[in-house]
Simulated scan of single mutants.
Amino acid sequence: MSHSVYYGSQITRSQFGSNNLARAVGRLPALKTVTLDYNTIGNNNIDIKLLINKNITSLVTMDLSGNSLTSLGQGTFQNYQMLQTLILDKNKIQYLSNETFIGLSRLKNLKITGNQIDEIENGTFKPLKQLQLLKLSYNQFTGDTDGLIKNLRFLSELSLANNAIKSLVKCSFCHLPNLTEISLQNNIISDIAEDAFYNLPNLSKLKLSKNNIAIKNQPFEALQSLKELYLDLNSVGNFSNKGLSPFRNLKKLEVLYVNQTLFTNHFTKHTN
């Protein structure tokens, strides 16, 4: 099945789901949005070679989710310099190199969820100067977040949920001053350095549910704009002898989940 929306005599949006029609993209020089989800696009077939070699400067959105990509080579998308949204969910990608996203200086949204990524080379996202949304959930990543996402100054939403991250070291996110939301739920995080969330003046939502966290210090002290904090299904009960001291400096906090217990309105209301 294919679907196209026409503006004048030029095709600007095409959807080729569940077909082998990637080769058609190269014949549409005015294309702005292309959805090629759930095709048979893989690293060794003609479709990916045709995509890489085409120079469609008008393309703004590309969806390659649900295909069979296992890796992304050097400059895979460098001919799509106007691209703003790239979706690579539900492939079989295992590794991202620092040359994968060369040329995508206008990209704002990148989604690579549900792959098998266990290694991301430092500097991989460096070319993405305008990136605002980065979703890497449901992978196998275990590494250092600071080296991974350093200096993405416009990034506002980051999801690393459902990976295998074990700890958050000092300054894990301190080069991301415009972050408003971080999702880290369902990892295996046990330790959070006291300065892990330093220099995040705009962070309003932090999701840490379903980890192995036991609060031992004041990891949230610097989060003066935080409104929602999710810590349910952890080991945070270990701080019970300290009362709610790890959260006392969070003057704007409105919602706090701790072990399936919800505290709202600056702890004045308690709901089971």
Rank of each mutant, 00 (worst) to 15 (best):
S2N: 08
H3L: 12
V5F: 04
Y7N: 11
Q10G: 05
Q10H: 15
R13P: 07
F16N: 08
N19P: 03
A24K: 11
V25A: 14
R27S: 11
L31A: 09
T33L: 14
D37P: 02
N39Q: 09
N39I: 07
G42P: 02
N44R: 08
N45S: 09
I48G: 05
K49A: 13
K49D: 09
I52H: 12
N53G: 15
K54T: 14
L59D: 06
D63Y: 08
L64T: 05
L69F: 04
T70H: 05
F77I: 03
T85S: 15
I87R: 10
Q94T: 15
Q94A: 07
Y95H: 13
I102L: 11
R106D: 15
N109R: 15
N109K: 15
I112A: 04
G114R: 03
E119I: 06
E119G: 06
E121K: 13
N122I: 03
F125E: 01
K129E: 14
G143V: 00
D146T: 00
K150P: 01
F154S: 12
F154T: 10
S156G: 12
S156Y: 05
E157D: 10
A161L: 00
I165Q: 01
H175Y: 11
P177T: 06
N178K: 12
T180Q: 11
E181F: 03
D191R: 11
D191Y: 09
D191A: 07
A193K: 01
N199G: 02
P201K: 03
N202E: 10
I213T: 01
I213Y: 00
I215S: 01
N217T: 13
Q218M: 13
A222N: 02
L223M: 02
Y230H: 15
L231Y: 02
N234R: 11
G237C: 10
N238S: 13
N238T: 10
K242L: 08
P246R: 06
K252P: 02
K252F: 14
Y257K: 10
T261Q: 11
T261I: 12
H266S: 12
T268S: 10
